[in-house]
């Protein structure tokens, strides 16, 4: 397929991680919110981790050319290939 899954995967983690990090920065002094998570700012820490993961996935997805061009015949259309 012409779409590398790592691009949408990277993007969704960039966006969700980004939203969480920003919200985490804004609420870093609001102790009452983080009482539930035992005083740990989960939004900031986990949001940043997700953001970094998304960035890595997105960059790899951009670099790699998807081998299977949708215009060319698919592996199963090429007739009888030697079996693996």
């Amino acid at each position: 397929m012409g779409l590398d899954i790592r691009i949408p995967l990277g993007l969704i983690f960039l966006i969700i991680g980004g939203i969480m990090s920003i919200y985490g920065i804004v609420t870093r002094n609001a102790a009452d919110i983080y009482q539930k998570s035992m005083g740990i700012n989960l939004n900031l820490t986990w949001g940043l981790l997700m953001f970094i993961f998304g960035l890595i996935m997105y960059l790899i997805g951009k670099r790699q050319k998807w081998q299977d061009d949708p215009v060319n015949p698919r592996p199963w259309e090429k007739g009888d290939r030697p079996r693996h």
Binding site: I16, M20, T27, Q35, K36, L42, N43, W46, G47
Partner: peptide, 14 residues
């Protein structure tokens, strides 16, 4: 609901 504050709660529900 017990452990996640607003924000990451949205992620958990997602």
């Amino acid at each position: 609901l017990h452990f996640f504050p607003t924000g990451i709660l949205g992620l958990g529900l997602t």
